[in-house]
Design a binder for these strands. Structure first.
Lengths: 223, 223
DNA sequence: GCAAATATAATAGTATTACTATCAAATAAT
DNA sequence: ATTATTTGATAGTAATACTATTATATTTGC
């Protein structure tokens, strides 16, 4: 995968970090290796101390970039949603037929993630796994109300609103475009989780992709 | 709401607890007040020490019932799924028409929870909120593989398999009964979460219930 | 009604987590 | 070359997530 706009940077709400991790070498190493470490040991077991040891840096230095690991997770997920939005716009912008556009959108959200060489310090494949396994934890908190006001979920919300709009463009009479958009997004990540850990609770596997399931679901709904 | 089978007890995998909390007064107080406290401060901030203070008991006494708060969450959710299964069977058993049966099932999963006076130490309304806000955390862990083998999610899985079977009974040719069943279950709880915290990401509100949305979704899919 | 068994409470202690503060050393900018 | 900025090292605190021990109730069996 090759990026078209070489100078593009995923724009993330500045309140999420104390110091922009994209602005320094240490910052980029924090991003790169936090993705590896969270994948390896899970978000609950992940600590800044362990990350510091891993990258040969100091715990206190990491705290200068992020207040805590929750903020780091918000950063990583915002990055992911921003990246996905970029993929989405790139893949669907030229399509004029609303159904084709929506079909492509479902594909973008449900297909297997591939490495994007444009961002060498971000492993999108592992980041996708973090979204599947940890993203819910970033909003299932007592602070969600305030953090939503602070705009920490804006890219995610914008993505769903985009899908919602595309649904309406296919069928303006459909009554639940936002709900269906949310279902597609959360649901497709959940189907991947089930595939790995609870295969009896899904029909998705090598032959039946989540893509096929959601295409069926969405287009029957909009008929 | 009145229970028909007075002696019924929700059966929970014995490996989840060290000592059956239903077997003593302290155990029941642990269940009752953990539901209140988790609702109030959230699962992350909840500790056995705080719970002990609240119920005028000792931290170490609570540890004799549950290894840790994760196990307590597994207990509470198993109880909830068992209770829902009971509601489901009761409400649908007599229905012979497969479509009617499935319609009733969707209603059971999406309707607002009401207090069940049969279990005075369990507040089902608050427990429902815990499921909405905390259940994902019980399986989004590094231990999910082992805990699944140990049977900690069996009631949840059985519930989804029941819905899946009902879907197949309506349309035997439908290719994704398990995936759709998972989508109904996770999705309906998620729609309630969105209603409360991200209303722009759902069309469900006082007038448009999640029930209506999922009925539309499911029956169009099965046509 | 009493002894034995069991359940609960009180206290203390450990390792880890989630930070904050301070100061020194390295690096970059002017 | 001086100053400012960034990073590293060390130490310290309060809270968490437990375990262990012993004392005190309470229940049960005979």
């Amino acid at each position: 995968m090759e990026r078209l706009l070489k100078t593009m940077k995923i724009g993330i709400n500045e309140k999420i970090y104390l110091k922009d991790p994209e602005s320094s070498d240490l910052g980029k190493r924090i991003l790169e290796h936090s993705i590896n470490l969270i994948n390896e040991i899970g978000f609950e077991n992940f600590t800044f101390r362990k990350l510091g040891t891993l990258i040969g840096s100091n715990e206190s230095s990491i705290y200068r970039y992020f207040e805590n690991k929750h903020k780091l997770l918000l950063y990583l997920s915002s990055w992911y949603w921003g990246w996905l939005e970029y993929q989405l716009v790139l893949a669907t912008n030229a399509i004029t037929n609303p159904s084709e556009k929506l079909k492509k959108t479902i594909e973008i959200f449900t297909k297997k993630t591939e490495i994007d060489s444009s961002f060498p310090h971000i492993n999108e494949v592992l980041l996708n796994r973090i979204i599947i396994n940890e993203y819910s934890k970033s909003y299932l908190t007592k602070e969600v109300e305030q953090e939503n006001k602070d705009g920490y979920f804006e890219i995610y919300k914008r993505l769903i609103e985009r899908i919602s709009q595309m649904i309406t463009n296919v069928n303006a009479d459909y009554k639940y475009p936002a709900s269906l958009a949310s279902t597609i997004l959360e649901g497709s990540f959940h189907q991947y989780f089930l595939q790995e850990h609870f295969p009896s609770l899904t029909n998705c596997d090598e032959n039946n992709t989540p893509s096929a399931y959601f295409n069926d679901l969405v287009f029957k709904s909009l008929k």
